[in-house]
Simulated assay, not measured.
Amino acid sequence: MYEILKSAHSGWRYLVIILLLVAFISALMGYVGKKPYTEGNRKLNVFTLISSHIQLLLGLAIYFMHDWYKGDSSVAIQRYWKMEHISMMLIAIVLITVGNARSKRGTTALAKHKTIAIFFGLALLLIVGAIFAMVKVDPSRHFFGM
């Protein structure tokens, strides 16, 4: 079961990153170009939110099944998986969630695009930073693979 969840988590990350990148770019272009906030924008943001929450659930299942929370914090790779990875990813998903919720309350299309661009952009930066940190502590891994 652990291997299935790990494979699902590893594969699902591409969907999350692609959706997050597309939603961020769409919001940035909407903000800069003063474009209307469409139903397509809303759906893209919701799909990004849902995919990130699914990734979170898969990650939490792996985290507790593998007992990463029991890792030795003095060992860099164990500290990364025990604290750094989960913290950065939780914060990124909170940013996605808050950004999506706040965009719903925006009164203008410009405000909605700006909110999504800021929150999703910060989440994207955090996720990319987490990937770089993983590569740093475990040189056997590369940027987008195992």
Score class of each variant (00 low, 15 high):
M1N: 13
Y2P: 09
Y2C: 06
G11I: 14
W12K: 05
V16D: 00
L21F: 15
A23E: 01
F24H: 00
I25R: 01
G30K: 00
Y31C: 02
G33N: 05
K35M: 06
G40H: 10
L44Y: 03
L44D: 02
N45M: 03
N45P: 04
V46F: 10
F47L: 10
L49I: 13
L49P: 01
L49Q: 02
L49A: 03
S52W: 01
H53E: 04
I54T: 12
A61K: 02
A61V: 15
I62N: 05
I62T: 11
M65V: 13
H66N: 07
G71E: 10
G71F: 11
V75G: 10
V75Y: 06
V75W: 09
V75T: 08
A76S: 10
W81S: 14
K82T: 10
M83V: 15
S87E: 15
I91S: 13
I93L: 08
V94D: 04
L95C: 15
I96H: 00
V98A: 13
G99P: 00
N100L: 06
A101M: 11
R102H: 07
R102W: 07
K104L: 12
L110A: 06
H113Q: 03
T115C: 02
I118A: 01
G121A: 04
A123V: 01
G129M: 09
G129D: 09
A133W: 03
M134Q: 07
P139E: 03
S140C: 08
R141G: 13
H142W: 11
G145Q: 07
